[in-house]
Design a protein around this nucleic acid. Structure first.
Lengths: 129, 129
DNA sequence: CGGGATCCGCACGGATACTG
DNA sequence: CAGTATCCGTGCGGATCCCG
């Protein structure tokens, strides 16, 4: 049928990715996004819209320039965020979620919220009787 | 007021956890759960119910004994999974999600699914034109 | 301001051997 | 089967200096 479209074939291919398999590309992708700084960057950008480098640096307390830059570069190359340079003096750089990044933002935000919401319960179970 | 109950004060405290802050306990918790092996273990247990050590080892292709054991111990001490030893010969050990673990499972499953569903798009953006 | 480049410690994580 | 113990490489991540 003519209705076996590219979209359908893509859906078929998608179903074949399995992060449980060591060699599957999605395993590497999962490793990438299962990262503290990735989660916090996406949460920050998702909540605040476009943000500048220094804003992110302040928001993500304790992050080093190296890790922040490294994280931003990785997210950019994976198409999750955009990097926009405005040639002011001094230069202004702002980061923003792409549509792809926004879709992930929903999930990582849930992860961060879970950590905050269940902190008490975890603490109670760590040093109990 | 007498209506300022312990439950209310606890709700207040919960709202104060902020993973953006370096010193906040939830930051450490976020770091813990933002882990590839944690995600995969929770996904496996969430999908298959109770599982034995060797089952997990097979399901999570490529994981070393050290990392698997380490991950299981951490999840156990945080109250996310239970460890049950049955004194057969040889001994049988099975792991299962707690209620707390189940609530996190929903989120990490979304993370894994996202990685698998959006793999194509990320790959397309990595080596573009 | 927004990084790049470099040095370096150390802890993360793999491999192997051994145990109850 | 389900680990524990040990050795060991390496890359994560912090600190520092420099640049446009």
């Amino acid at each position: 049928m003519a209705t076996t479209t590219a979209a359908q074939r893509r859906a078929q291919a998608k179903a074949e990715y399995d992060a449980f398999l060591a060699a599957c590309p999605s395993r590497q992708l999962l490793d990438r996004i299962s990262d503290k700084w990735v989660t916090l960057v996406l949460c920050a950008l998702g909540a605040g819209g476009a943000m500048r480098y220094s804003e992110l640096s302040r928001k993500l307390a304790g992050v080093s320039q190296k890790m922040l830059t490294q994280t931003l570069r990785a997210l950019e190359s994976d198409g999750l965020i955009t990097r926009t340079v405005t040639p002011t003096v001094p230069v202004t750089v702002s980061y923003e979620l792409t549509r792809l990044g926004s879709s992930l933002h929903l999930t990582v935000r849930a992860l961060k919220s879970w950590a905050e919401a269940n902190m008490d319960e975890v603490l109670a179970r760590r040093s109990p009787g």
